[in-house]
Design a protein around this nucleic acid. Structure first.
Lengths: 137, 137, 137, 137
DNA sequence: GTGGTCTAGACCACG
DNA sequence: GTGGTCTAGACCACC
């Protein structure tokens, strides 16, 4: 069981995006490594109780973005890690996302400390230790 | 020059949402204060080269969220700050926003500490003392 | 026949509001229950001989008020009952509605007791035990 | 001072309507009696800090509905009380208004007792004793 | 002048 | 198929 996918059907982020994000996150944290195989479209669709087209769409995006590559007839595999963005670009994107996040939240009138603590909570769910039986890349 | 609106037409966040966010941000930072008048629907639509209905949509959302209120025939004004939502709902929205934020950022492979520090940085720009100088109106 | 919508086109309350009210009423009386699907925008628009945008407007309001939630690509469903608004806001809205009600009725020159008794009568039709029999779904 | 007008600028009921309602209510409760003179358009507009057109519009409606009549050159006077509606019609209208009221309030999830108490509160503000120095008609 | 509602018809994202 | 967004242009109520 190389990865545990899970989707939130009630979320406002589309399902295909949730799949893409989870693969990318797994690649970033090391839970998935270069050459690891992804579940087949059919298998994943069945597991998530989701339309196969949705999974196919997500996989298509991953291939298009160079995160995964298909080896014909054998399935989809994680591509070698490429840093697509410069460090500057990464930070720029992070800052922009933080801006958007706060503009969402500002009018809810939370204390800064509350925002931080909820973020840390959520962070705890995202950041999992990389595969325990393999050293991190 | 009470407020400078600007929109990114090609963005993935809809135009009406960009308008809403800018008003909310202005209200949060104090650039816009209780009782201040917003530009008229037609004026802002012309300025942004956007359909008036799009602006009207944004304004309607602001009214529904209690950020602004319309005085009939006279225009839209920034409403007094009220707690519209229950604590439960506020936290629900905060959590949802945090998840969206992190899902956008996760694959950039930042350390948690980096994310926190950028957030704190941005937080500093948002939170400022309420009503530092009241010379308006 | 899950729900019978009907609108009065000549009424002073806008069409989209009539739709919203009927859904809310159905939710209050139990005619519509958590998880029940609402007719599609296009279907309801056709049934009511109304522009789809008008129905979409109503549905948008229902989502914003937490009465319904949209599952992308699948439709609109009645949301689990949540307390969206703060107690302050709830009372504010109740008071506003009461004032509107009485201002419509005051010039009819009823005794307070008569108004109360008619209200109680109507109240009896609205409040009923939550989920008396769950055979749906 | 035959009547104390007051308007709520932030209300969702238009100003002209608030004026109309107050005159009709005063006529219903006996605070204003047949032949009593209403303040001039200019005077009332000034008192309420309102556009004279708005007052004129309200007065026009009152005349059109037979509640007041203008004696040319002398001003506006309360017309003799006429029951425009049959008792059945009055009750029908009361019931309809109660329905609308509750459809507004239902999803706020109040106890019946709370609704009653807020209504009584509001009722207390509306129903004032008729002119103390004159016996009721 | 202001905002509010409605229609018509288009295009997109999602499943 | 679903809902979401945007444009165009109309009409209304209010001030």
């Amino acid at each position: 069981m190389p990865l545990e996918f899970h989707i939130a059907p009630g979320s406002d982020t589309p399902i295909y995006r949730q799949i893409v994000d989870q693969v990318r996150r797994a690649a970033a944290t090391g839970a998935l490594r270069e050459g690891d195989q992804l579940p087949s479209v059919r298998a994943l669709a069945e597991q998530l109780v989701v339309n196969p087209n949705t999974v196919a769409r997500a996989y298509g995006d991953l291939v298009r973005d160079g995160v995964a590559e298909s080896r014909h007839g054998r399935g989809l595999f994680l591509a070698p890690k490429r840093r697509i963005f410069s460090n500057e670009e990464r930070r720029r994107r992070l800052r922009r996302a933080a801006e958007t996040f706060l503009s969402e939240v500002a009018f809810l009138d939370f204390e800064s400390s509350e925002i931080r603590s909820v973020l840390d909570e959520t962070l705890g769910q995202w950041k999992r230790p990389p595969h325990p039986n393999k050293e991190a890349s």
